[in-house]
Amino acid sequence: MARRKRPKKKKISQPLSLTQEEQKAVSALLREMNEIDPARLASRIPDSRHAQAVVEQVRLDAPVIPFLIAVKERFADKNVQKAVKKALFKLKQRGLGIEEYVKPGEDTASALKAPRIHEPEVFVGPLLDMSGSRALLLIHYRTMKTPHVGAGMVSHREGIRNFLYGPFSRKKTRQMMTRLEEFAGPLVTTSFSHAAAVLEQAYQKHMENHPDAPPDYLELRPWLLREAPPLDHPAVYDIITRDSTADRDLTDSDMDKLFQHRLLKPWRIEFEGLRPYIEELRKIEDSPLI
């Protein structure tokens, strides 16, 4: 009589065993899950062992899908790929589909689209008054789709005024940028480090002049200083060298070229705008009281 084969016991997968230092690194990555762009976070994972551990320990909800896709794209290791597929399967069972991240007509397990890395965008306006007030707007992505925006007026003499920071829709972000440009523009693109330097200088002056710190900037500040150390030199020297600025007087042609630049056109006052003030000065000079 033939023996009946015993059914094979299904292997129960055990979580990856980590050293104390490895777990510390994994926990640090998990804390940043909703703080920075998913693809950027995936690029910070040092090796496949850490990648597998992060995937196994991450909280499974909708915002984690872009991160899982980024990890799958970066690590070809079999265990990492298996951990990602398992996590995506669990998400799908919970009704959190991944269809929007999948190329049309292809299988979800093999055709995940790599997430797009959103680089921060920074804009500054011209100096508006003698205190050095200017508009600043910063856009970066903590999650895959929602931009976080910091915007307000900054001054190296007065500090930070009317600064807002938080998640805004793309439509709201465009509206905010348009209004800011109308009020204190034109806005021009600048470097991330330059923006950090402008904001930090204004923050230090703000703390000298005011007892309370601007709360929205305090929320942005740790991330900003970590991602973009402030410049240690004037931003103009990223465009020209110190040696190229000759020590000579400006000629009429130099001045004409300078004031024809679009950023300086708003600074020019036409004669008709000055006429009332000139006439008032003449009246004062002709007055018998002078």
Score class of each variant (00 low, 15 high):
residue 159 G to P: 06
residue 159 G to N: 04
residue 159 G to D: 08
residue 160 I to Y: 01
residue 161 R to Q: 11
residue 161 R to A: 14
residue 162 N to H: 12
residue 164 L to F: 14
residue 164 L to K: 10
residue 165 Y to H: 04
residue 166 G to S: 00
residue 166 G to I: 00
residue 167 P to G: 02
residue 168 F to E: 11
residue 168 F to L: 13
residue 170 R to M: 15
residue 170 R to S: 07
residue 171 K to S: 09
residue 172 K to L: 14
residue 172 K to S: 14
residue 173 T to Y: 01
residue 176 M to C: 08
residue 176 M to R: 07
residue 177 M to N: 13
residue 177 M to E: 09
residue 178 T to V: 14
residue 178 T to I: 13
residue 179 R to L: 15
residue 180 L to Y: 05
residue 180 L to W: 10
residue 181 E to P: 04
residue 181 E to S: 12
residue 182 E to D: 13
residue 185 G to I: 08
residue 185 G to T: 10
residue 186 P to Q: 11
residue 187 L to I: 05
residue 188 V to F: 06
residue 188 V to G: 13
residue 190 T to P: 08
residue 191 S to R: 11
residue 192 F to C: 10
residue 194 H to Q: 15
residue 194 H to C: 05
residue 194 H to K: 11
residue 196 A to K: 08
residue 197 A to L: 06
residue 200 E to F: 01
residue 202 A to K: 04
residue 203 Y to D: 00
residue 204 Q to V: 05
residue 204 Q to T: 13
residue 204 Q to K: 05
residue 205 K to V: 07
residue 205 K to L: 03
residue 206 H to M: 00
residue 210 H to T: 07
residue 210 H to D: 06
residue 211 P to N: 03
residue 212 D to A: 12
residue 212 D to L: 12
residue 216 D to C: 01
residue 218 L to S: 03
residue 219 E to D: 07
residue 219 E to L: 09
residue 220 L to N: 00
residue 220 L to S: 00
residue 220 L to M: 08
residue 223 W to L: 07
residue 224 L to M: 00
residue 224 L to Y: 01
residue 224 L to V: 02
residue 225 L to P: 00
residue 225 L to S: 02
residue 225 L to D: 02
residue 227 E to I: 08
residue 227 E to W: 06
residue 228 A to M: 09
residue 231 L to F: 04
residue 233 H to M: 03
residue 234 P to I: 02
residue 234 P to E: 06
residue 235 A to S: 07
residue 236 V to A: 11
residue 239 I to K: 11
residue 239 I to W: 11
residue 240 I to V: 08
residue 241 T to P: 04
residue 241 T to R: 12
residue 244 S to H: 08
residue 245 T to V: 15
residue 245 T to C: 14
residue 246 A to Y: 09
residue 246 A to N: 09
residue 247 D to C: 10
residue 247 D to Y: 07
residue 247 D to T: 14
residue 249 D to C: 10
residue 249 D to S: 08
residue 250 L to G: 04
residue 250 L to I: 10
residue 251 T to W: 09
residue 251 T to E: 02
residue 251 T to Q: 04
residue 252 D to V: 14
residue 252 D to S: 05
residue 253 S to E: 12
residue 254 D to R: 01
residue 255 M to S: 07
residue 257 K to R: 15
residue 257 K to W: 11
residue 259 F to S: 06
residue 259 F to E: 12
residue 260 Q to C: 09
residue 261 H to S: 03
residue 262 R to F: 07
residue 265 K to P: 10
residue 265 K to M: 06
residue 265 K to D: 12
residue 266 P to V: 05
residue 267 W to T: 15
residue 267 W to M: 10
residue 268 R to G: 12
residue 270 E to Y: 11
residue 271 F to A: 12
